[in-house]
């Protein structure tokens, strides 16, 4: 496979085409991933999420520059929602990272959520692996934290950062219910705006209630991303978390969990596809449906007999 060799030799085009294959679920994606897999597991994966308008892309841009200044190479996956009406999307995160475009140590890829609910987390996870195998030291996965699928995406990260801004009003309740528990580090962006102190206080209270039993108490860092203020401190917090999870076996445990989840998902998806293919292509599905309709058979019996026939060998 040339594309794998090219990717491992540093071809950005090969990397880009690989991510396309993953995204579009081309058949060759499985083969590519198979060959890339041994080369993964080196990068620090940072998930960045938060409500719309929180300044996640600007934050990503500034963090990426900070890591570049430390001599690390950076990969960025920026996920934006696909329009449910047209299936199209405007992927607008890149515009806030234009100054990184010509830095050879940075690779940015925008992805649309494309309607596939479970599939997205799997695709972003594979895209992260492609960047990892390419040799990126730090990989950002940036996504709007509004739903379960986004939460699943950031689960692919070693460290998850939640970005908030003052002035969200009652939204803090929603955050409490949703993304509070996934944050390893919190950043309050636009900290020069009114309400930043109040937000910090509220957040502290919630984390204190939530975190009595936990060993890692998520820190809260105030940032003005547009001016780069607080970015170095934020990097320090992220590093601290990374060291913590490495030293306490948390990273190992998280990656173990992740591998397990990925394997199970892959297995389920593959088995499902295998069985579906075999009964759809042969036209047997229609026969089953007829039988069920006429009550000559029932779904439970059919599934059992299919499993016996197709899998137990």
């Amino acid at each position: 496979m040339d594309i794998v060799k090219d990717l491992l030799n540093g071809s950005r085009l090969a990397l880009s085409r690989t991510i396309t294959a993953i995204e579009n679920e081309y058949d060759e994606a499985v083969d590519i991933m198979k060959e890339l897999y041994p080369h993964t597991g080196h990068a620090f994966v940072l998930g960045i999420t938060g409500p719309p308008g929180a300044g996640k892309s600007t934050m990503t841009d500034k963090l990426a520059r900070a890591y570049r200044n430390m001599g690390k190479t950076v990969g960025i996956i920026a996920v934006d929602p696909t329009s449910p009406f047209s299936g199209g999307a405007i992927l607008g995160d890149r515009i806030r990272m234009n100054s990184l475009t010509l830095d050879e140590g940075v690779f940015i890829r925008s992805m649309g959520t494309r309607g596939s609910l479970g599939g997205l987390s799997h695709k972003t996870a594979d895209a992260v692996k492609a960047l990892d195998a390419f040799g990126k030291d730090v990989i950002f996965v940036e996504t709007v934290g509004v739903g379960q699928s986004e939460v699943d995406i950031v689960k692919a990260a070693d460290t998850t950062m939640v970005v908030l801004i003052p002035g969200m009003g009652d939204d803090i309740q929603a955050i409490k219910a949703g993304i509070l528990e996934i944050g390893d580090v919190f950043a309050i962006n636009k900290a020069d705006h009114d309400g930043a102190d109040k937000l910090q206080m509220e957040l502290n209270m919630m984390l204190d209630l939530d975190g009595e039993m936990k060993e890692w108490r998520p820190p809260i860092q105030k940032v003005i991303a547009s001016q780069g203020e607080g970015i170095n401190e934020l990097v320090a917090q992220l590093d601290k978390h990374y060291s913590y999870i490495k030293e306490n076996g948390v990273l190992e445990q998280r990656r173990h969990e992740r591998t397990r989840t990925e394997l199970m998902e892959l297995l389920n998806a593959s088995i499902g596809r295998y069985i579906t293919n075999s009964i759809v292509k042969t036209g047997r599905l229609d026969n089953y449906l007829e039988d069920i309709k006429s009550r000559a058979n029932d779904p439970y019996t059919i599934v059992r007999s299919l499993l016996d026939e197709l899998l137990v060998k």
């Binding site: 600007t58 405007i90 607008g92 515009i95 806030r96 234009n98």
Partner: peptide, 16 residues
Amino acid sequence: GVMRKVFGEYEAHTNL
């Protein structure tokens, strides 16, 4: 150029 050095440059944030 002198003013750019001291003041920095504006970065546009386009929402579509």
